[in-house]
């Protein structure tokens, strides 16, 4: 997901049909520059060298998203069905993980590891991050856990919200948090939001190919 505003212009994109390093290239209608998917950078044309800002997003099940954002809208169209529409079952979690980016440096949290420890208070690339994984629908989210200059440490609470979502708690204030929305729903920090990181599900092999040498999370044992 990219922000289309670049400097003072708003670009609109078309599909170039060009395959480059396993990804399709986009073109912008305003200048016909060609844009690379993974980096959001223009590789050719008048805007060559420019980079689009990313917009954070979450891959999850409709059930989970709807519970957390009841006023959400949905893109219409025809269901294709088959593989593309099904959730990620346990047999696939071995080969997938959550790629988390902090200032364009990546770290991989393999789902297989997150199934052993689904809440991680971590630090990489000089940022304190919290990663949460729900095995039910293989959904991972990642947030910066620094707020007002204070570092928060999260744990899973025994509480759930009205929609049945598991809530996290920060040890510093005891506030309760939605891990999908990154927002405190109760306690001293109620209403506050954590900064959302860029994260996306990825095939573990692909992560290693895109980000050679990047760290991969594992539990101590």
């Amino acid at each position: 997901m990219y922000r289309r505003k670049l400097d003072d212009k708003v670009l609109s994109f078309g599909h170039a049909g060009i395959l480059y390093e396993n990804s399709f290239i986009m073109y912008d209608r305003e200048t016909e520059s060609l844009w690379v998917h993974v980096t959001g950078e223009a590789a050719h044309g008048p805007l060559k060298g420019k980079k689009l800002d990313f917009m954070p997003s979450t891959v999850t099940s409709w059930a989970n998203w709807k519970k957390n954002y009841p006023l959400t809208q949905v893109l219409p169209g025809y269901r294709r069905g088959g593989f593309m529409g099904t959730y990620v079952g346990p047999f696939q979690s071995d080969i997938l993980g959550l790629a988390v980016l902090v200032k364009l440096k990546a770290k991989l949290y393999p789902y297989g590891v997150l199934e052993r420890q689904n809440l991680v208070n971590d630090e990489f690339n000089d940022a304190k991050v919290v990663v949460y994984y729900s095995p039910d629908d293989a959904t991972g989210t990642a947030w910066r856990r620094e707020l007002d200059g204070r570092v928060l440490t999260f744990e899973q609470s025994e509480r759930k919200d009205a929609q049945g979502n598991v809530l996290l708690r920060d040890r510093e204030t005891g506030s309760l948090w939605s891990w999908l929305r990154g927002e405190a729903v109760d306690g001293e920090l109620k209403g506050r939001k954590l900064r959302q990181l860029l994260y996306n599900p990825i095939l573990n092999d692909r992560f290693v190919a895109f980000y050679p040498g990047a760290p991969i999370f594992d539990t101590a044992n």
């Binding site: 997901m1 979450t58 409709w62 529409g85």
Partner: peptide, 8 residues
């Protein structure tokens, strides 16, 4: 319910 979506 079980469909995968990209949510923003």
């Amino acid at each position: 319910d079980r469909d995968v979506i990209i949510g923003v």
